[in-house]
């Protein structure tokens, strides 16, 4: 990990991020009687804005919550969703747990690797896609599936994966993402 002792000692901080979101930060803080509870929400906010949790964000959060940077860092490293370094614009996370594996999640990983020419954990040269293989995302009946940033794409086929990747690259969004979840859809009466 690229974070060394300077996290704990560096003094030339430039606290910028959270000033821009003062209202949101105040709203978050107002929800908890104990400040530290705001830690995950603030980290989530930082990652939403920067794509990863930077050192300066961690220091800034520590300051806001009266914690030491080490307390922030020890918490960050526990949770798999926090990226400690920048990743591609779209984070492709394919579920590989048993239920998805039964219906072909290993193929999905292969299709993506083939199409993008990257392996697990890698980012495309144009910084658009990062591929991760992850554990169950709570969509086991509609696998194989992947999460891309905030959205779920389910019941994937090779063709569907291709379309998702093409759309995202071209338009920055894709209409195949799942809306409010219900499966199976009720039969028309």
């Amino acid at each position: 990990m690229a974070i060394g002792p300077e996290l704990l000692t560096s003094t030339n901080e430039c606290f910028m991020l959270f000033e821009r979101f003062k209202n949101e930060v105040d709203d978050i803080l107002s929800r908890y009687p104990v400040k530290r509870s705001a830690l995950l929400p603030l980290l989530n906010l930082a990652q939403r804005e920067e794509g990863f949790v930077s050192e300066s964000a961690m220091k800034e959060i520590a300051k806001i919550l009266d914690l030491t940077p080490a307390q922030v860092f020890e918490t960050v490293t526990f949770y798999t969703m926090f990226n400690l370094k920048p990743i591609g614009k779209f984070h492709l996370q394919v579920c590989k747990s048993l239920m998805c594996a039964l219906v072909g999640s290993d193929d999905v990983v292969m299709w993506i690797q083939k199409k993008l020419g990257i392996a697990q954990g890698q980012t495309t040269a144009d910084n658009i896609f990062t591929l991760s293989v992850v554990e169950c995302l709570g969509s086991c009946g509609t696998g194989p599936m992947m999460q891309v940033n905030d959205d779920y794409y389910e019941q994937l086929s090779e063709e569907k994966v291709g379309r998702v990747l093409d759309d995202l690259k071209r338009d920055g969004t894709c209409s195949l993402k799942t809306g409010p979840f219900m499966y199976p859809q009720p039969l028309a009466k």
């Binding site: 747990s97 169950c136 709570g138 409010p180 979840f181 219900m182």
Partner: peptide, 14 residues
């Protein structure tokens, strides 16, 4: 997050 479980998601979203 128990693998095989996806009911709460539907109850919350719908």
């Amino acid at each position: 997050s128990e693998p095989g479980t996806f009911k709460d998601r539907q109850l919350m979203e719908r």
